[in-house]
Computed example of a mutant assay.
Amino acid sequence: MTVVLLIEDDQSIADMISIYLSEDQYTVYCANDGMQAKQLFQEHDPDVVILDLMLPDANGIDLCRYFRESSSVPILIVSAKNEVSERVHALQTGADDYLCKPFSMRELAARTSALLRRSAMPVHSQRNAPAVVIKSVPMKDIVVDLEKRCIFLHNHPVDTTFSEFEIMKNFWLNPGKVFSREELLNKIRGIDSFVTERSVDVHITNLRKKVEIDPKEPKHIKTVWGVGYKFEI
């Protein structure tokens, strides 16, 4: 059973989301403040987190950062704040998607499913599919272990968000291939998700900070001007 941690202080919205996702065969645990959210996160190890930014006792961005420090769980932000700066800030902090209120339950469910579909977690749409195991292959100073969903830099693990790893995985499996921003966006979120291509640039910038010796002069993650990005050995 796929576990969703829903963090929402508006009880009517929380009830509506819980009922809708439960009907879609998710197990939903609800928290209405930051303290309860941290407790439920530790107790239930959720497969995906749906997080409202405005909470009575905590800043949602700080809570997102707290989750990201110890986990690569997909995080979907839901918020009435619809400014581009707010969305970019959330993505930079570690969120994987951002949905502005008001939203339809159908769209929320689609985005949740898209995040789970792109993760390594088994979801109801994948449970009967044959397992595919892909071994990692050493590539000089960077190694991507696809089974463990971990990037190693000089044999040291690098913490990444769900979306950062998905981008790196596609680079790793297709060295030298040029990906447009739209292609990367579709691969990490699914074509049913509404986010701007600017978010891909944010993830690339964060990846470079984590795996490049000099992020301003990247050796591996290259910009192809006017097209997108590629990964070089």
Rank of each mutant, 00 (worst) to 15 (best):
M1D: 08
T2S: 15
V3N: 08
V4S: 09
I7W: 02
E8S: 01
D10S: 14
I13D: 01
I13T: 11
D15W: 04
D15M: 13
I17T: 04
L21R: 01
S22Q: 13
Q25G: 01
C30G: 01
A31C: 03
D33L: 02
K38N: 01
K38P: 00
F41N: 05
Q42S: 10
Q42R: 14
D45Y: 08
P46I: 00
P46R: 03
L53N: 06
P56I: 03
P56L: 04
D57E: 06
G60V: 05
D62S: 11
L63S: 00
C64A: 13
R65L: 15
R65P: 00
R68Y: 00
L76T: 00
V78K: 06
V78W: 05
A80M: 07
N82V: 15
R87H: 03
Q92I: 02
T93R: 01
T93M: 00
A95I: 04
D96N: 14
K101W: 04
E107R: 05
A109V: 03
R111S: 09
T112F: 06
A114P: 00
L115C: 04
L115S: 02
L115G: 04
L115E: 03
R118A: 13
S119V: 05
R127T: 07
N128C: 08
A129G: 07
A129S: 14
V132L: 15
K135V: 11
S136T: 12
K140V: 01
K140G: 13
D141E: 13
V143R: 09
V144Y: 06
V144R: 02
K148Y: 10
R149P: 06
I151K: 03
T160E: 02
T161Y: 05
T161N: 07
F165A: 06
I167S: 03
N174E: 08
P175D: 09
K177D: 03
K177W: 06
F179Y: 12
S180G: 12
S180R: 10
E182M: 13
E182L: 14
N186M: 08
K187N: 09
I188S: 07
R189C: 11
G190E: 04
F194E: 14
V195Y: 09
R198W: 04
V202C: 13
H203S: 13
I204R: 02
L207E: 05
L207V: 07
R208G: 11
V211E: 07
V211Y: 07
D214Q: 08
K216I: 12
K216D: 11
K219Y: 02
K219E: 12
H220Q: 10
T223N: 09
V224T: 09
W225S: 13
W225Q: 12
G226C: 09
I233S: 12
I233Y: 10
